[in-house]
Nucleic acid binder design. Sequence first.
RNA 1: GCUCCGGUAGUAUAGUCCGGUCAAGUAUACUGGCCUCUCGAGCCAGUGACACGGGUUCAAAUCCCGUCCGGAGCACCA
Length: 501
Amino acid sequence: MAEALGVHIVKEKPKREEHLLPPLPNVQKYSRVHVRFAPNPDSVIHLGNTRAALLSDEYAKMYRGVFILRFEDTSPSVKPPMPEAYEVIREDLRWLGVNWHEEYIQSERLPIYYEYAEKLISMGSAYVCTCRPEQFREMVIAKRPCPCRDLPLEIQIKRWEGMLDGTIKKGGAVLRIKTDLTHPNPAIRDWPAMRIDTKPHPLQGKKYRVWPLYNFACGIDDHLMGITHILRGKEHEVNTQRQLYLYKYLGWEYPEAIHYGRLKIEGAILSKSKIRQGIDSGIYKDWSDPRLGTIAALRKRGFLPETIRRLILEVGVKPSEAMISWDNLEAINRKLLDPITKRLIFVPDPVPLQIIGLPKEFVAQIPLHPDHPEWGNITHKVTPSLNTIMVSSKDLSSFKQGTIFRLMNLFNVKLLDSSICAFLSESVAEIKSLGAPIIQWLPKDAGTQLSVIMPDAKVTEGLVDTNILNETLPNTFQFYRFGFVKVYREDSGLVGYYSHD
RNA sequence: GCUCCGGUAGUAUAGUCCGGUCAAGUAUACUGGCCUCUCGAGCCAGUGACACGGGUUCAAAUCCCGUCCGGAGCACCA
């Protein structure tokens, strides 16, 4: 109808229109887009890894494609898989809102890799190399074939069997894919595909002693799983070049590979090895230590999955490196959190303050959200006999004797000495015209102990409005004049993790 | 050193393919002001960038060359 009238109806604009992802290349070549996220379960995932996962997920949704989760756990001794990591990673992905349609674990697919290894050997496209690594390197730099390269097929097969049956010891041989020995990049010349690793695998035990290297397993799997578009960091650019040879020999077409630059976040640790090292040495409590850039840490601190997704989409797929600032991340999170988060009183480092000269009983109405009066208020009473309240020592110590200030939502007082003040008046307007400070407070017995872990892992102790115990926890609150805090109920009591202002 | 890949404000990003509408947009940060019983949110205004040098062109952030700077890779890791 509208079209008949020559009117073009614009559908509801996407919320993030300014950060829509660019289209994927050559989508029309494939019947259905297949993307994958292939983490190594040797550790948990962090903001950097999330980039591949979220970008792939977003594209899968954009094209109604298939998202494949593949655990790349084929290095028992160099990157030993952490048994619990498989589930922790799934958990993190679910939390991030990533939907995967298929899941594979490479350590369960060794027979497939063996099959292709044998095929490539018999085709003369791969050979078993028994040179010492340094020896091989010398030759390859000189663009000369190593002595193993052109050995007859029967010997290659015999050597391959030797790798499998244990005749050849660990480190004694490696399967190499033939490439171009004159390739300008020495790293590409006759790259290794399989090696012997006798360390028991957490999932497979001692079942296998020959394991595929990254390029072999990944290259084969990407094809077998029908991957059409690969999103990965640019550290893999050379790997793409290597795998091209494999695809050529097997007559396969290589997927579209998109390489993005590294993601760093100012001040936070994003290196898996450094994280693990820090945990082992006790510097960090665990993977969710607030100083880390892990998903577990961001979640614990109250960052929302949507925040992380928006950030990743904003950064996009550029090949250059990006240094994310906390300001940006926090601003996104604050914008999402602010309208939906209850306000409560938290008094850091509390000290008592007695109020004298009270003419009557006062009831303070503290809104749960200033922009949502319908959410209601929390009330606190101060009477001539119940006249001691708790305030932050930081506030109190900044006031000189005689300072006039307001107790938020209550009344105005004048400081007499370090722990006594006198009732002055009730009017808000009065205090505003003076430009005097307004501070948060709690009646002496209305607070519950709360330890807030700050982003630098230091702890701020304080009292939080006891009404928090009526809330479902964990939950994020905004404490007046303090900031957003995600509060947990732990055995030791209430523990909060500071998100941001 | 070798092989690749990049460089738009403090940070991130749009624009670069298909030169003019870009005296460069947006977000955040910062500075002023308004609003607010939070040092939160919101509103208004402002500061701030095309790495440098050549070339092509009537015209260059956009194309070409050089320089500088940055990153990645050069594992029997992924």
